[in-house]
Amino acid sequence: MSENTTEVLTGAAVLAAAVAFVVYAGQVSGFSGGAQTYPLEASFRSLEGVSVGTDVRLAGVRVGSVTEVVLNPETYRADTTVSVQRGIEIPDDSAIVISSEGLLGGNFVEIVPGGSPFFYAEGDSIEDTQGAVSLISLLLKFVSGQAE
């Protein structure tokens, strides 16, 4: 009889671990059934290290994610769509920048808020963009002594 109890407890523990993993994976991927978002567009010269699903942060807090990246064949820029949580209003003179989490960390999209009393509406385009800066090219310039 004790073997049967042990099997049931082990099965329950495995099932609880599987449910915990699914919940954790949903939180990490940004999946939430009730979250309402609105799209904003931006065009970057370089989108190095950023892809669909990358975090969009404001003041270091995740407020959305990158939902679409398309190469514009006319301008050779990366046309990007980001989704931002409803209720978070972005001033219409804000900038959007590709930032790095550190020397060895990945990249994320950062919204640098402006001071305008007017806000972006759904589907608006953020004009003030700054693409990714390649750490390797910066180091090569430093080592070779080149100045821009």
Rank of each mutant, 00 (worst) to 15 (best):
V61I: 15
F44Q: 04
T81G: 08
A95V: 00
F118E: 13
I126S: 10
G106W: 00
N72A: 07
V70R: 15
G53N: 03
L103G: 10
S46M: 03
T10H: 11
T54R: 09
E68R: 15
V61D: 09
V133N: 10
G49V: 01
L103S: 07
F108A: 10
T37K: 14
Q130K: 15
R77T: 11
G106M: 05
E68H: 12
G115F: 03
L139V: 09
V66T: 07
V50N: 10
N107A: 15
F108G: 04
P73E: 14
I90H: 11
V8F: 13
V70H: 10
P91F: 04
L58N: 09
I96C: 12
I90D: 05
V109H: 08
E122V: 01
T5S: 14
M1E: 11
V133K: 15
S144N: 11
A147G: 12
I90F: 07
I96T: 03
V84N: 12
G131T: 03
F119V: 13
Q146S: 12
E122C: 06
E101T: 04
L138C: 05
S99Q: 11
A78N: 12
V66W: 04
E101C: 02
V23C: 13
E7A: 14
D55F: 01
R45E: 12
A25R: 09
V8N: 11
L103N: 10
S32V: 01
G115R: 10
G30E: 03
L103D: 06
L9C: 03
T6S: 14
A35H: 00
G60N: 02
D124R: 08
S116R: 07
I90E: 09
L135T: 05
S116K: 09
G145R: 04
Y24K: 13
V23E: 06
G30A: 06
G115V: 03
E89Q: 15
G60K: 03
P39L: 10
L140V: 06
L104R: 11
E148P: 11
S94M: 09
Q85V: 08
L104N: 07
G30Q: 04
F142W: 06
A121W: 00
E110P: 00
